[in-house]
Design a protein around this nucleic acid. Structure first.
Lengths: 142, 142
DNA sequence: TAAACTAGTCAGAAAGACTGACTAATTATG
DNA sequence: CATAATTAGTCAGTCTTTCTGACTAGTTTA
């Protein structure tokens, strides 16, 4: 199979999926049960706490959806809510100790996957791939 | 923002999402109304016809899910079914004329996006990125 | 202070995916 | 060759994720 023949969508998607599968497998192995949608929101939770509305905006879902997902994270013990001292309408969400443990598992697995990929195609080429992707992302962001 | 700081997941996901958004926008502009899930299955339909079970396997969904999605594609006029001459249990699915038109819109938009990306980071670097991604994908496939 | 805005939730609906149970046709086996 | 096992596909029911619309309750602004 010639990579020139593969469309760029597949070239990007395939490694992404592989990484995602590895991350969720690692989480499951460590006993963390978290859905992809919850994870996507959780990634955007700031250490000092985030508002549901901010999370919704950053994850590009409606406030209602974010509200449901945050509730799920709280119910599962990965996040906790506390009132926003500056605005009585709002509450803030932050990672719980359990949530931080889960995040550590994710980071460790990403590092492991990156090490494997670097070994697979060579550290020079892998670093170059990262740089080139970074350059593309920068251009896409404006 | 330093690209070295971004995790590889984001580096892959961001361009992928951008491409996908462009494709669905182009389809919508051209008057094609197709859902992402339907599109994912449709991409795997062989010119000579595919079985629902094969599509399910390749798209990694259950036969039931594939069955529903194929029905949607047929109802929307993008695909058509005909009996498998070799197996009376099975029927084959292939793209209709309308489906082929939609596929052409997708191909054109992908080409346009690739041309833009190539211009954005330079053709040499873009070609290199493609090659490096291809190399990574080859390794991931075994 | 009243009007306008913002934070967040509730209710209801749809899409997409799942499991389980089923029918009908085909292949394998004793 | 008859019956058991397998395979193709659908139906029914459920769960998750997401949406829109309507609402409550604080906050800001005019």
């Amino acid at each position: 199979m010639d990579s020139e023949e593969l469309n760029i969508g597949l070239l990007l998607r395939f490694p992404y999926r592989a990484l995602e599968d590895r991350i969720f497998a690692a989480l499951a192995r460590a006993g963390f049960d978290i859905t992809p949608a919850q994870a996507r929101l959780f990634r955007r939770v700031a250490p000092e706490g985030s508002r549901v509305t901010d999370l919704a905006e950053r994850a590009r879902v409606t406030k209602q959806t974010a509200s449901v997902l945050v509730q799920g994270l709280v119910d599962a013990g990965y996040a906790e809510r506390f009132p926003d001292p500056k605005d009585a309408r709002a509450s803030l969400v932050r990672a719980s100790a359990l949530g931080l443990q889960a995040a550590a598992v994710v980071d460790a697995e990403i590092a492991r996957v990156e090490a494997e990929w670097s070994r697979a195609i060579g550290p020079t080429r892998y670093a170059r791939l990262r740089r080139d992707l970074g350059e593309l992302v920068r251009h896409l962001q404006g």
